[in-house]
């Protein structure tokens, strides 16, 4: 099984990564962690101020460097946790949704695991809208991780019975 995990620098992504790390996966599972960098929308800024253009370029370089380091750390963490599985990580450039979807097709992912921001239409990177767009348009299964109450109720699930709401007579 090939698992693609698109991340950004948010807590939601951390949650998604943690949920993958917490599970046990088959030996043949492969993981790919990607961080999509959207180029800064400052094309042509040098026409107005060369200094501003330089600072924008520097800021962008710093951001990509930071992202690369963060992906490196995450990949290392995955390799420690799953020593027998293949783990790769990369920084990709382009539109977030399109890049995730094209990576899913090119790599042949079976499952995408991603976090979802609770806010809609606000915030900076992987928004709820990105998760929604990926879930709607991908050709593989998509898991949207949400912050939930981690209640370990495994013990009390033993006595569950089948329930059929009113009108069970049609059995």
């Amino acid at each position: 099984m090939k698992i693609l995990i698109p991340v950004d620098e948010s807590e939601c992504s951390e949650l998604a990564l943690q949920s993958v790390l917490d599970r046990d996966w088959a030996v043949e599972s492969q993981f790919r962690i990607i961080n999509v960098h959207e180029p800064f929308p400052f094309a042509g800024v040098e026409m107005y101020s060369p200094r501003a253009a330089q600072s924008v370029t520097d800021a962008e370089k710093d951001l990509v460097k930071e992202k690369r380091e963060s992906i490196g750390r995450t990949v290392e963490k995955f390799r420690m946790r799953f020593p027998s599985n293949s783990v790769s990580g990369d920084i990709l450039t382009g539109d977030i949704r399109e890049t995730i979807l094209s990576e899913e097709r090119d790599w042949g992912a079976d499952l995408i695991v991603m976090g979802s921001h609770k806010r809609k239409g606000l915030g900076r990177l992987l928004l709820g809208s990105v998760a929604e767009s990926v879930a709607g348009n991908s050709s593989c299964s998509v898991e949207i991780i949400k912050e939930s109450l981690h209640i370990d109720a495994s013990g009390e699930s033993k006595n569950e019975v089948d329930t059929i709401s009113k009108g069970g007579e049609c059995l």
């Binding site: 499952l111 709607g136 348009n137 299964s141």
Partner: peptide, 24 residues
């Protein structure tokens, strides 16, 4: 249609993790 109204509504409204399953 790649994903139906029910799965979309569930993915949006559920408080817990939701997996949209597409058996290849």
């Amino acid at each position: 249609v790649l994903w139906g109204g029910v799965s979309r509504a569930v993915a949006t409204n559920a408080k817990c993790t939701v997996q949209i399953v597409r058996p290849a």
